[in-house]
Design a protein around this nucleic acid. Sequence first.
DNA 1: CAGTGGTCTAGACCACAGT
DNA 2: CTGTGGTCTAGACCACTGG
Lengths: 229, 229
Amino acid sequence: MSRLLKHVEIREYVRDLVQGSAPGTAAPSERDLVDRFGVARMTVRQALDALVSEGVLERHPGRGTFVAVPRRLPTGVSSFTEDMAAKGIVAESRTLVAERVRPTESLLVALRLRPDDMVVHWRRLRLADGRPVCISDAFLPETMVPGLLEKLPASLYDDLASRGRRPTWAEDDVAARTATDAEAELLEIPVGGVVLTRSRRALWRETPVEVSRTAFRGDQHSIALLLRN
Amino acid sequence: MSRLLKHVEIREYVRDLVQGSAPGTAAPSERDLVDRFGVARMTVRQALDALVSEGVLERHPGRGTFVAVPRRLPTGVSSFTEDMAAKGIVAESRTLVAERVRPTESLLVALRLRPDDMVVHWRRLRLADGRPVCISDAFLPETMVPGLLEKLPASLYDDLASRGRRPTWAEDDVAARTATDAEAELLEIPVGGVVLTRSRRALWRETPVEVSRTAFRGDQHSIALLLRN
DNA sequence: CAGTGGTCTAGACCACAGT
DNA sequence: CTGTGGTCTAGACCACTGG
């Protein structure tokens, strides 16, 4: 039995229907969906609104609703595992810390938590073809990823995706500094070597899902970006 | 005479009301707005939906609607001059090199030039409130900016804008390394200090406009980004 | 012309917050 | 308890598009 909200049910129905269709293909009209699901038109519109704001559909007044031209191609909010796979490199990671902690004040704000909420802290050394690439600290609301610590996934973003919470956008801040001694040792670079750091707040729709800080080996890595106005 | 749609009128009313309020401040409740404007609740919700998706407001079921924690500003393809102005800082620059040169092979490709085309090379030391921030080398097709060298503008992107060629998108590559001796001296950092580098190819529509390489003082500067899927 | 999406009404019941 | 946002109904009129 479907315990879904109606507008969710309709949204997923249309999403499946449209999956893989060429841009410009007509989607069912709002009144068609009203008849098919026996709901009010506002409910159908609520479902289609979501798909439009996701960039799946486009509305054309007086004509209909159509599959949208594909969105922004490039990385967007990318996952380390995917970035490496795209280069044909096998990504590995070694868990250094996986714990349940009380959030700091800044985490509380960034993740939009309530005072008693706990966060999951996961620190990993990440490797490509067996060589250290970066150290990352990820912080996630415990309620967002129940059971994560009991069974650490191979890819955090894959895990979030399976929970329907893959980040849709992120705020990044990129900087450079010298490595701490601990970082230098883990990354196998000289003490005082250069690291490229990335602070990220990743969100799904309007909900913060992850805050992370990553330090990349400066001598090997760079961050590629595509910016649009 | 206001020819505004009701939901637009309500949206702008709330936007003004909330302008400058601290995050967490309560916005009018939906039923308040229904009374104030004499409209149906769906109409009010339509107005608030827009503000929520803009990140201006947050909804908290059972509690109310509140001013959202501010997002970082979207960057898009930003200009140094504009970035500084946004922070209330006076940007200056000191021209180190301004010349007409034959393009290297990689510039020829990146700027999509023909073999005999020349490029303008402009190197600047850029300062904020009188202190060095970065060194940038910009390369532009000569045909794109005739007369630039005869009258160097205060802001390159302003100049491009006045020619109708302001970059609409860019490919950036961000990395970290130690400064060269020359860079260290200009940036007033210790020899061997850290710099954050950005290689950019900026395009207007599908036409390459600029290739630049910039080295920022790593101890002071970071690059803020907004990524979307 | 009939069909589309855009806007809007005037209600309703629900789950949830805080008092 | 009251008030909040979340969902939903069953209509309505409009401007616009296409045939």
